[in-house]
Structure formats: C-alpha cells, structure tokens
C-alpha cells in the first residue's frame, strides 16, 4: 500500500518543482512589461495574459505538492488530541470521502471544457494577443488530476494506519 503511495508522491513531487519554477518567467515577463511601457513607450501585447496564466499554472500545478507537504490549513482543536487511528479516520474522511470524488468529477468537467476549447479552436478573447485557450484549460485539468493522485496517496497512508499496517500517520510518511 505504502509502496504505491511513494510512487504516486514521486509524481506530485516533480510537478511541484515545475510549478515552483514558473515564478521565474512570471517575474521576468511582468518586469519587462513595466520596462517596455516606460522605456520603449509601448506596452507588450502578451504580458497581461502571460501574467494570469503564469499565476494560474503556478497554483494549479502546485496544489498537489502543497497537500503532500501538509501546507493546507486546518483547525486542530479537536484533531490534535485524538489517537492515531481517529486521526487517520478523520483524514480519510477528508481525503477519500469528501475530496477525491469531487476532484475526479472536477477533472472530468475540466477535461470536457478543454475538449470544447480544442474543438472550437477557442481563443481567450482577453487581449490583442488573443492566444488559443486549450493549453491553459489542459493545465487546469492536469492540476486537478495531480491533486487526485496525491489524494489517493494520502488515503492509502490513512488506510495503512486504519488496517494496522502502520502505527501512525507520521510513521506512514
């Protein structure tokens, strides 16, 4: 069970690295826009759309990694004082029962949305650049598929505690 979880986490780990690196072009392109506006007196046509796409991709591709790093917040008023099995059960509820079906459904919805963009050759319609929108939609879908993968990994860790294979969630890490 844990071997599968480890394998899945390798995927999220690498996606996290890609997501984090996106900040670099985001900084460069936005700075260039300011530079172009005041020094060349001519704004670029692409900086606005590249800006939101950079932020979007950064966040979408990083969601799964952030879950893996336990950086999403919760209130541990009750949670912190429970035993390992109860903790694992609460997490299992959050990951497998609530989030996983939602994420899978949403990934499917985003896939259809991506397909539509591809079929209509839809463009963003937001600026003079007006790029085709399917790559960004694909990125949205990939973000949620990655989140689903990490949710499966987390659920497996919970299960391993619940069936007694690991003593606690910390050990299952």
């Amino acid at each position: 069970m844990l071997i599968v979880a480890r394998f899945l986490e390798k995927i999220t780990q690498s996606s996290g690295i890609i997501a984090a690196l996106i900040i670099i072009p985001l900084i460069l392109s936005t700075c260039y826009e300011v530079f172009a506006r005041y020094v060349f007196g001519a704004p670029t046509i692409w900086a606005y759309e590249l800006g939101y796409m950079g932020m979007g991709a950064h966040f979408l591709l990083g969601m799964a990694y952030t879950l893996k790093e336990k950086a999403h917040i919760r209130i541990d008023l009750i949670y912190a004082f429970r035993g390992p099995k109860t903790k694992a059960a609460i997490d299992f509820l959050g990951y497998a029962v609530i989030m996983l079906p939602f994420t899978i459904w949403l990934s499917w919805g985003l896939f259809m949305y991506y397909e539509e963009a591809l079929m209509f050759e839809e463009t963003s319609g937001q600026s003079a650049w007006n790029p085709v929108i399917w790559p960004f939609r694909l990125c949205m879908m990939i973000g949620f598929v990655l989140l689903a993968i990490q949710l499966v990994a987390e659920s497996l860790k919970c299960l391993s505690v619940l069936v007694g294979q690991s003593a606690s969630l910390e050990e299952a890490e």
């Binding site: 007196g41 001519a42 704004p43 606005y48 759309e49 319609g125 937001q126 600026s127 003079a128 007006n130």
Partner: peptide, 23 residues
C-alpha cells in the same frame, strides 16, 4: 501612441489607427 484601455476585437483594430491598446 495613445495608451488606451479597451477590450475585445477593438484591441486589434485600434492598433491599426496607431493607438497602443492596454488590457
């Protein structure tokens, strides 16, 4: 070179008039 804010299809057309459209 007029820095004008606009949206949609007019962005491209206003450039032909010489303006610098901004979104």
């Amino acid at each position: 070179g007029l820095k004008l804010r606009t949206a949609g299809a007019w962005i491209d057309m206003s450039k032909e008039l010489g303006a610098s459209p901004v979104t």
